[in-house]
C-alpha cells in the first residue's frame, strides 16, 4: 500500500529524516517509536504533505502513485488521514459542518454524490457511538474549547467518518487519561479492516497495549535503527531507547 524509499526531509534547511525505508501492506498496523526529536512526527507530517516541511529526496508511493508530489487535500481524498498531535481550533465553524464538508469533498473526488445535512446526521451519529461522543459536540466549533481528550476523540471521529485507507496517528496517546486512551484505541481497533492500514506514532509503549501492532520500528536521529514485532515495544519499555541509540 505504502512504499517509502530513502526518504529525506527537513525543515528550514535542517535535515531531520535522513533516509527512511518502510513498506506497509493493507491490513497491517505499524508502530513508529523513538525518543523525542528522532523525526517521528516529521515522518507523519511529511506523509500528510505539511508545507512547513521540505522533501529533500527519496519517494513514497501510495497505491502505485507518488504521494510526495500531491497536494495535501489530494492525498486526503485518495485516503491518507493524519490524526494530529495538536488538533487545530476553527472558531465559528461547527464540527458538523466541517465534517460534512470534508466528507463531501472526499466523496466528490471519488465521483460520488454529496450527502445532504440530514443524511449526514445519520452517518455521523452512528460513528459518534464508536468514540462515545455526545451529539452536542456536533454544534460546537471545531476543537475550540475542547479538552485534550475531546480533541483526540474528535480526531478519531473524523477518521471514523472519512474511512481512510491509510491512517497515521501522531502521538494520539499524548495527554490522554486511561479512560480516554481506552476509548480512542477502541475506536481505532473498530475501524481496522483487511483493506486499510495504520501507522501509530508514539513515544510510549502504553498505547500499543490497546492497539496491537504487527510491526514496530524504532526511529533515531532520522533513521530506522531497528524493526521487529510487537515484542520490540515491550523491550523498549523495559530498556529505554539508549541501547539502540548507542548501537546506531
Amino acid at each position: 500500500m505504502l512504499d517509502i524509499t530513502a526518504l529525506r526531509a527537513g525543515i528550514a534547511e535542517r535535515e531531520i529524516l535522513k533516509g527512511i525505508d518502510l513498506n506497509i501492506k493493507a491490513g497491517e498496523v505499524h508502530a513508529v517509536m523513538g525518543p523525542n526529536g528522532s523525526g517521528k512526527s516529521t515522518l507523519a507530517q511529511v506523509l500528510a504533505g505539511n508545507p512547513a516541511y521540505e522533501v529533500l529526496g527519496g519517494s513514497a508511493t501510495f497505491l502505485g502513485e507518488e504521494l510526495l508530489e500531491l497536494e495535501p487535500e489530494i492525498r486526503a481524498q485518495k485516503g491518507v488521514f493524519l490524526a494530529f498531535q495538536y488538533p487545530v481550533e476553527i472558531p465559528g465553524v461547527t464540527n458538523a459542518y466541517f465534517l460534512r464538508s470534508a466528507y463531501n469533498e472526499i466523496r466528490k473526488a471519488r465521483g460520488e454524490e454529496e450527502v445532504d445535512p440530514l443524511d449526514f446526521l445519520d452517518i455521523i451519529e452512528d460513528r459518534m457511538k464508536l468514540v462515545e461522543m455526545d451529539s452536542s459536540m456536533l454544534n460546537r466549533s471545531v476543537n475550540a474549547g475542547f479538552s485534550g481528550g475531546e480533541k483526540k476523540r474528535n480526531e478519531i471521529l473524523q477518521m471514523a467518518v472519512l474511512q481512510p485507507k491509510l491512517a497515521i496517528l501522531d502521538e494520539t496517546d499524548s495527554g490522554l487519561d486511561i479512560d480516554a486512551l481506552r476509548i480512542v484505541a477502541g475506536g481505532v481497533n473498530a475501524l481496522r479492516r483487511p483493506d486499510n492500514a495504520t501507522i501509530v506514532v508514539t513515544h510510549y509503549q502504553r498505547l500499543l497495549n490497546y492497539i496491537v501492532p504487527d510491526f514496530v520500528h524504532v526511529l533515531a536521529n532520522g533513521r530506522i535503527v531497528r524493526s521487529g514485532g510487537k515484542e520490540l515495544a515491550l523491550e523498549l519499555e523495559e530498556r529505554g531507547y539508549d541501547w539502540l541509540l548507542d548501537a546506531a
Partner: peptide, 9 residues
Amino acid sequence: FYCKQRGIS
C-alpha cells in the same frame, strides 16, 4: 493545512 488534510481545498 488541517482543513486540507481533511480533503478541503
